[in-house]
């Protein structure tokens, strides 16, 4: 198997695993998410915290094998995160969850998908013309 095909397969497997995990936890359930966000149910939040704790422990224990990710503080962090958080509550989806919602058969998620696509394109346009700070990278 060539390296390129192997990379495609690995991306497929990791995507599949992420989709299964997010659906299994219930992050794609609009009402379940709102129970977490209104702090009336701590199950999903606890899962999220445990996931961070577990990954942090492994990353700290094996820094040699897992190179540190570069995330920089830039002027877009605060307004961008605030906008994302509010949008997350409105549509009940983050950039990964929208695909899981579609997998569950939720057709309204097509509008969220279109919205995210337009938002990404719009930001690209706005950034190149007006903002021009280094945002670092997110797994690209």
């Amino acid at each position: 198997m060539s390296t390129l095909v192997k990379q495609y397969c690995l991306n497929a497997v990791m995507g599949l695993a992420l989709g299964v995990t997010l659906a299994g936890i219930g992050f794609a359930d609009y009402d379940e998410l709102h129970r977490m966000l209104t702090l009336s149910d701590s199950r999903m939040l606890s899962s999220f915290m445990l996931a961070i704790g577990l990954a942090a422990g492994i990353f700290t224990a094996f820094p040699k094998y897992i190179p540190k990710q570069k995330k920089i503080l830039h002027p877009g962090i605060i307004p961008g995160s605030l906008l994302f958080g509010m949008g997350w509550a409105i549509c009940g989806a983050c950039p990964a969850i929208v695909f899981v919602q579609l997998g569950l058969g939720k057709l309204p998620a097509l509008m969220t998908l279109l919205g995210i696509f337009l938002g990404v394109k719009l930001y690209r346009f706005v950034h190149a013309r007006y903002l021009r700070w280094d945002t670092g990278s997110c797994s690209v």
Binding site: P79, G80, F84, G87, M111, G115, H127, T135, C138
Partner: peptide, 14 residues
């Protein structure tokens, strides 16, 4: 609109 906020916001916050 919520989706647009997510798309724009996540790119802005990187």
């Amino acid at each position: 609109f919520g989706g647009m906020m997510v798309g724009f916001g996540t790119q802005m916050a990187a």
